[in-house]
Design a protein around this nucleic acid. Structure first.
Lengths: 213, 213
DNA sequence: CGCTAATGTGAACGCTGTTCACACACACTG
DNA sequence: CAGTGTGTGTGAACAGCGTTCACATTAGCG
C-alpha cells in the first residue's frame, strides 16, 4: 500500500476496508467519500476511479456487510444438531433469525449499512453478498425454509411467501432494537423477546394448514 | 402569510407544511433547510428562529407524520364491528397492523419520515404524535392489546412485551415492502402477505399458554 | 525503449447545515 | 404619543459534502 508514493497499489480494497471501519464506528452516515479518502491518504477524486458514486461505494460496502451476516448465520446454524433432519430444519430457521438480530446488536453500524436500502430482490442473490459458506443471508433463510418444506413441516402453500413473513418479523425486531424505540432494552429482555419472535415466526408459518379456516 | 412583506406571519407552520409536502414527494432526504426556506420564500437562516437544527425540524415533521398514521388507524379501527368485545379486540389488533402497512404504501415518503429514527420509547407517547382521536400509533397498539387481555385472549405473561412482537412484524413488513427488497411486489401479493403477517402476529402473541411447553 | 492506458492530483462548482452581525416592525411602557 | 425592546427576518460567510475536469504520474505492454 502506498507503494510508489503516487500510486496506492490496492486502493479499492483499502477504501472498502476503511469504509467498513467507518461504518462500524459511525454507521452509514460516517461513510463519506472525502473522509475515506482522507483515511486512506488519497485525494477525494481518486475514489471515483474505483466507484462510480458515493451510492455505488455504499452499495459495495453493504454487500460486504451482508456477507458478514451470512457468516454469522453459518456459525449459528453449525451449532444446530443435525442428527434428526426435521429437528434440524426447525432449528435452522431459528438460528438464521437469532444470528440476524445478534449481528445487529453486535455491529449496529454494519447492520444499518447492510440493510439500509437493500436493492431489489435480485440483490438478495448477489455474488458479493455471499459469505464463506457460499450463501447470502437471504439464501440462508431460503435454505432453512426449504428444509422445513422437505420435512413436511410446511405445505407448499405455506412455503410460498414464507421468506417475507420470517424476514419481516426478524428485520423489524432488529431495526426497532438497534435504532428504534426499543434500542435501550437491556440484554436479557432483548434475548427473551428475540426468542419469542422466532417462535412467533415458526408458528405463523404454519397458520394455513393448522387452523381449520 | 407574507403579510408585511418582511415578516412572514406564520413561518413555523408554513415550514412544517412545506416539509410534509417535500417528504411526501421526495422522502426524508427531500427535506432540507434551504429547500424549505426557498419554497416558503424566506432566507435559510430564518428557519433557525423556529427550529434549533435540521434534525429538530425533521423530528417535528416526523411527529406530525406519526399523527397521520394514528388517524389512519382510527379510520381502520372504526370499521371493526364493536358488538362483541372479544371479536372487536381481535379485529382491532389486525386493523392497527393493516392501517400501518397501508399508510406506508399510500405515503411512502411520509412513512419513512415518520419512523426513520424514532426517538426512544418516550417519543411513543409524545403529545404531538397523537392523532385526532388523541392517541399515538403506539398507543393505538397498546389499546388493542389491552382489549385482548381484558377479554382473556392474552394472559398477563403474554401481554408483556406484546407491543414489541406486533410492532416488529408489521414494521419490518412495511419497511421491506416500501424501501426494501419486497418493494416491487404487486398490490395483490402485498395485501395477501399483509393478512398473513397480522395472522402470524395474532397467533404468535398467544404462544406462551397454548403450547404445553 | 517508448506509448498507452490506468490511476492519482488539485482546483473548481454547486449544494448542504449553521452562525453571525445587522435590519426591520410590531407591542408594550413611560 | 414617543420611545424602546424583543421577536423575527436578512445576507454574507464558513466549513463540509459529492462530483467533475484538466492535468500529472507511472506501470506494463508491444
Amino acid at each position: 500500500m502506498a507503494r510508489s508514493g503516487y500510486f496506492h497499489g490496492d486502493l479499492r480494497r483499502a477504501l472498502l476496508d476503511a469504509g467498513l471501519e467507518a461504518a462500524r464506528e459511525a454507521g452509514p452516515e460516517g461513510v463519506s467519500v472525502r473522509e475515506l479518502a482522507r483515511v486512506v491518504g488519497v485525494s477525494p477524486s481518486a475514489v471515483y476511479r474505483h466507484f462510480a458514486s458515493h451510492d455505488d461505494l455504499r452499495s459495495a460496502l453493504a454487500l460486504r456487510a451482508q456477507s458478514m451476516v451470512a457468516d454469522a448465520m453459518d456459525a449459528e446454524i453449525a451449532a444446530v444438531p443435525s442428527a434428526d433432519a426435521r429437528a434440524w430444519a426447525n432449528g435452522a430457521i431459528g438460528a438464521v433469525g437469532i444470528a440476524y438480530v445478534r449481528f445487529a446488536w453486535a455491529e449496529p453500524g454494519l447492520f444499518r449499512l447492510a440493510f439500509r436500502a437493500h436493492g431489489d430482490l435480485e440483490a438478495a442473490h448477489d455474488e458479493r453478498a455471499r459469505g464463506a459458506g457460499g450463501r447470502t443471508p437471504y439464501e440462508q433463510l431460503e435454505r432453512a425454509l426449504d428444509a422445513l418444506e422437505r420435512e413436511g413441516e410446511l405445505s407448499p402453500r405455506e412455503r410460498a411467501g414464507a421468506e417475507a413473513l420470517a424476514w419481516s418479523a426478524v428485520h423489524g425486531f432488529a431495526v426497532l432494537t438497534v435504532e428504534g424505540p426499543l434500542r435501550s432494552l437491556d440484554r436479557g429482555t432483548r434475548e427473551a423477546l428475540a426468542a419469542r419472535i422466532v417462535a412467533m415466526v415458526r408458528l405463523g408459518l404454519s397458520q394455513l394448514e393448522d387452523s381449520g379456516r
